[in-house]
């Protein structure tokens, strides 16, 4: 029987949500010159004019973005390279601080932006899984509990006891993927659909990601693959030069892309 009152559906307050209000993110881009203190001092002593932000060029990556997502929303982000998709994902992950406005996220966030996060080539596969799990917020005991499952999924067997630098690129990708997807999240952030390894592993990886997406309350996926977005998302937003379109239904994706 379906719950009649929406309150019954919300077991634990507050519910999973993402809320961005007038989010503006500016990016100082530091050139090689700007990273040298010697050159700074030289500029001052020879009377050169310092740039407004100390030789760094400011780029506005996102301007005035408003976004409200609630549990069940699967948002696809489309837009050209450099349109601000990844920056938005990083802001949602909490890594980038807004210059104006705010980002508020309720729920445990997992950002699968860079699989190689925290991978140490000289450490063994096991140590890397442990490290990655700790960074993702698991306790040592929780990591140990999941170790067998992660190890089995990676399919690397005895190689896990060897340093990661001895792995082939495909094996490294397997390890990174297995470790990165071993988390439970309410909010899942993804930059492109990450399916790695050989054909067999890709199938497994695909299944595992789907499970993760199903468990998560909210998915934000940036991708250039229109079919993929249609498959996994129910909403879509287009970014262009840091400005976001309104969030629309995935059925209107073609109109959005044509606009």
């Amino acid at each position: 029987m379906k719950p009649t009152s929406p309150k019954i559906g919300l077991m634990k307050p507050p519910p999973v949500s993402i809320s961005c209000r007038d989010l503006t993110l500016r990016f100082p881009v530091y050139g090689v010159d700007a990273k040298s203190l010697k050159k700074h001092l030289a500029k001052i002593t020879v009377g050169g004019k310092l740039g407004r932000s100390h030789g760094a060029t400011e780029v506005t990556a996102i301007s005035g973005l408003n976004l409200e997502l609630k549990a069940g929303d699967r948002l696809g982000l489309v837009g050209h390279n450099g349109s601000g998709k990844t920056t938005l994902l990083r802001a949602l992950s909490g890594a980038y601080e807004p210059d104006e406005g705010s980002v508020e996220v309720q729920g445990h966030i997992a950002a699968l932006l860079d699989l190689n996060l925290g991978i140490d080539p000289s450490a063994t596969g096991y140590d890397n899984i442990r490290l990655r799990g700790r960074i993702a917020g698991l306790s040592s005991r929780q990591v140990d509990e999941r170790m067998d499952e992660i190890a089995e999924f990676s399919g690397l067997g005895p190689f896990l006891a060897m340093p990661v630098k001895t792995y082939s690129a495909g094996m490294q990708a397997r390890l990174a993927f297995a470790a990165a997807t071993a988390v439970e999240a309410d909010v899942l952030l993804m930059d492109e659909w990450i399916a790695v390894g050989d054909a067999d592993f890709q199938k497994l990886a695909h299944k595992r990601l789907l499970k993760l997406v199903e468990r998560a309350g909210i998915l934000v996926l940036a991708s250039h693959d229109v079919e993929l977005l249609r498959l996994y998302c129910n909403k879509v937003m287009r970014m262009e030069g840091g400005v976001a379109s309104a969030v629309t239904d995935i059925k209107k994706l073609d109109e959005l892309l044509a606009a």
Binding site: D99, G101, S102, V103, V105, G107, H108
Partner: peptide
């Protein structure tokens, strides 16, 4: 894990 379940970031 409570610390990670609510995140608020704002401008200056």
């Amino acid at each position: 894990m409570e610390a990670a379940t609510h995140m608020l970031r704002t401008g200056r």
